[in-house]
C-alpha cells in the first residue's frame, strides 16, 4: 500500500530512539561493573570480576540487600490477600458507592509519593514504629496496592459468574466455591500483582529514604547515599543485582502468565 514505507520509517525512528533511551543505562551499568580499572572510564580499562569480589565481601551492601528483600517479602505477603479480596469484590459485586470506593482505593496513586511517605513517617513516628523494618514493608504495600487490585480485577473480569453458580448448584458451599472456582480463575492476576509488588518494593527508594534510619538502610537508599560522594565501579556491580532480579522477574512473569497480558484491552 502507498505510504507504508514512510509510516514504517517514522514509527521505527521513534521506537529505536525509545529503545536506546530505555536500555542505555542498563547496558552501561552492566558494562561498567566488569571494568578492571578503579574508576569508570571510557573506553574501559579491560575486563575483570574484581568488583563482584569486592561487593561479595562488603557486609554493608549485603545487609542492605537482605533488608530490601525482607521489605519486599513483607509487602508482598500483605498485599496478596488484601489486594485479591478487594479486587474480586470490586469486579464481582455491585458494591454501593462503587465510584467512591474506587476513588478511595486509588488514593495511594493520586497522593504523591512524597506526601504518602511523609504522612506515613509522621504516623509511624507517633506510634513509635520508626527504626524497624516491617513498617517499611507495610508502607510499600500501601503505596503500591492499586497495582495489585488492578491485576486481580483484570483477571476477575474474565471469570464467568455462571461458573460460581454452577459450583453452588452442584452442592459446593460458599467457601469451597470461593477456593475452588473463584481463586483459581484469578490466579494469573494474583501472580502478576504479587511479582509487581515484590519488584516495586525491592526498588522502592523515596518511601524507604523517609522511613529508614542509618542502621536499617535498604539497598536503593544505600546506593543513593554512595552516589553522592564518588562514582566507583562497586556501585555498578551491586546495581547488577537489581538488573538480575528484574530479569528473573520478567522471565517468571512471561513463563507464568505471559507478558502479553499487559497488552490486553479491558
Amino acid at each position: 500500500m502507498k505510504g507504508d514505507r514512510s509510516k514504517a520509517v517514522t514509527l521505527w525512528t521513534f521506537v529505536v530512539v525509545a529503545l536506546v533511551m530505555l536500555s542505555a543505562p542498563t547496558l552501561v551499568v552492566l558494562g561498567a561493573s566488569f571494568t578492571a580499572g578503579n574508576m569508570i572510564t571510557f573506553p574501559p580499562e579491560g575486563l575483570s570480576l574484581k568488583w563482584y569480589a569486592a561487593i561479595a565481601g562488603a557486609t554493608d551492601l549485603r545487609d542492605a540487600f537482605l533488608r530490601s528483600v525482607i521489605v519486599a517479602t513483607i509487602c508482598t505477603a500483605i498485599s496478596i490477600p488484601t489486594g485479591t479480596l478487594a479486587g474480586i469484590a470490586l469486579a464481582k459485586y455491585r458494591v454501593r458507592f462503587a465510584a467512591g470506593v474506587q476513588v478511595y482505593l486509588l488514593l495511594p496513586f493520586t497522593i504523591p509519593l512524597i506526601g504518602s511517605g511523609i504522612g506515613l513517617m509522621l504516623i509511624f513516628g507517633k506510634w513509635g514504629l520508626l527504626g524497624q523494618l516491617w513498617p517499611v514493608g507495610v508502607a510499600c504495600a500501601v503505596i503500591n496496592l492499586p497495582f495489585m487490585i488492578w491485576a486481580v480485577t483484570a483477571s476477575a473480569a474474565s471469570l464467568d459468574p455462571d461458573l460460581e453458580l454452577a459450583a453452588a448448584n452442584c452442592g459446593a458451599p460458599p467457601l469451597s466455591t470461593f477456593l475452588a472456582v473463584t481463586i483459581p480463575a484469578v490466579t494469573p492476576g494474583i501472580i502478576t500483582g504479587a511479582l509487581l509488588m515484590f519488584i516495586l518494593a525491592l526498588n522502592e527508594f523515596l518511601v524507604s529514604l523517609l522511613l529508614v534510619d542509618a542502621r536499617i538502610v535498604t539497598l536503593p537508599v544505600q546506593i543513593y547515599n554512595s552516589i553522592r560522594s564518588i562514582i566507583t565501579p562497586d556501585l555498578a556491580a551491586i546495581s547488577v543485582v537489581f538488573i538480575a532480579v528484574a530479569a528473573i522477574a520478567i522471565a517468571l512473569l512471561d513463563w507464568l502468565v505471559g507478558l502479553d497480558i499487559f497488552l490486553k484491552s479491558k
Binding site: A24, P220, A246
Partner: peptide
C-alpha cells in the same frame, strides 16, 4: 515488552546512576 519491563523493574536510582556514567 522485555526492553520496556527491564528498566521499569530496575528502579530509579540504578537508572539515574547509569545516566551519571553516560
Amino acid at each position: 515488552l522485555i526492553a520496556l519491563f527491564l528498566p521499569f523493574f530496575i528502579g530509579q536510582v540504578v537508572r539515574a546512576y547509569g545516566w551519571l556514567i553516560i
